[in-house]
């Protein structure tokens, strides 16, 4: 479904990613770990196609198609969707409207709002004065409306209280068709520090981003255990990488 080969990306003239190789198959959920500033957000923004994240080498293939230089909105229309770590505020545009726009008119706004406990925010301006957790839920509501087949989630649970994490976990599972075993096609790449989301969403593969590339891949739960125990520093000298 998604295939990154030797991907190099620079931001403001500084190379952040220097050769990322990653393959995510149909119906798989992958987890991305890595210390602050490692380039996790950069990787997601590059896959989504933000022009500020300049691809200087390598390739991004989505459903067999080379999308490395495809504009942002066309990637969105092909089925890539993202929830942002720090989305902008848009004054005058209501949360209800952005969810409507994300769903191209086909979404049931009130039902979606109910799913992620967002009803009371629908008439507020997009992200205007939202708390950390409210931003996450608003992002999730937009994604549910958008129905992407490949989902990029940037720390979906950080700053969210336990009750709402379980709510978000449920929403992510629905987005990823986790209840549909065989017909499932949607895939996902999730950034997490705490790993709380693993208690709600079943993941297939974990990766550690370090030094501008994927330094290690494996069972996400085991990896989280290692990171919790010995941190990323151990990781850098791990012989298996």
């Amino acid at each position: 479904m998604l295939e990154l080969t030797d991907l190099r990306v620079e931001v403001s003239g500084k190379e952040i990613l220097n050769g990322v190789n990653l393959t995510i198959d149909t119906a798989q959920t992958h987890i991305l770990f890595g210390p602050n500033g490692a380039g996790k957000t950069t990787l997601l923004m590059s896959i989504m196609g933000f022009p500020e994240y300049k691809v200087t080498g390598g390739q991004i293939r989505f459903n067999e198609e080379d999308v490395t230089h495809l504009p942002l909105h066309e990637r969105a229309r092909l089925g890539i969707g993202m929830s942002f770590q720090r989305p902008p505020t848009i004054k005058g545009l209501k949360t209800r409207q952005i969810i409507e726009l994300s769903g191209h008119g086909g979404a049931d706004i009130d039902e979606i709002a109910g799913e992620v406990n967002l009803g009371y925010l629908l008439d507020r301006d997009v992200n205007d004065g939202f708390s950390g957790g409210e931003i996450k839920r608003s992002e999730m509501a937009q994604l549910i409306a958008q129905q992407p087949s490949f989902v990029l989630l940037d720390e979906p649970e950080s700053g969210v209280d336990l009750e709402n994490i379980s709510l978000l976990g449920g929403a992510i599972n629905k987005l990823l068709q986790k209840d549909m075993k065989r017909q499932r096609v949607n895939s996902c790449l999730i950034i997490t520090h705490t790993g709380y989301i693993l208690d709600y969403v079943e993941a297939d593969v974990g990766h550690i981003l370090l030094g501008g590339r994927i330094s290690c891949s494996g069972n996400p739960r085991e990896m989280l255990g290692h990171i919790k125990e010995s941190g990323y520093e151990e990781c850098a000298i791990c012989p298996s990488c």
């Binding site: 989504m48 969105a76 969707g81 942002f84 902008p88 848009i90 726009l101």
Partner: peptide
């Protein structure tokens, strides 16, 4: 940032 945010939801520029 605002334009690109909406573009990430599938809107043209």
């Amino acid at each position: 940032e605002e334009i690109e945010y909406l573009m990430a939801r599938g809107l043209s520029e």
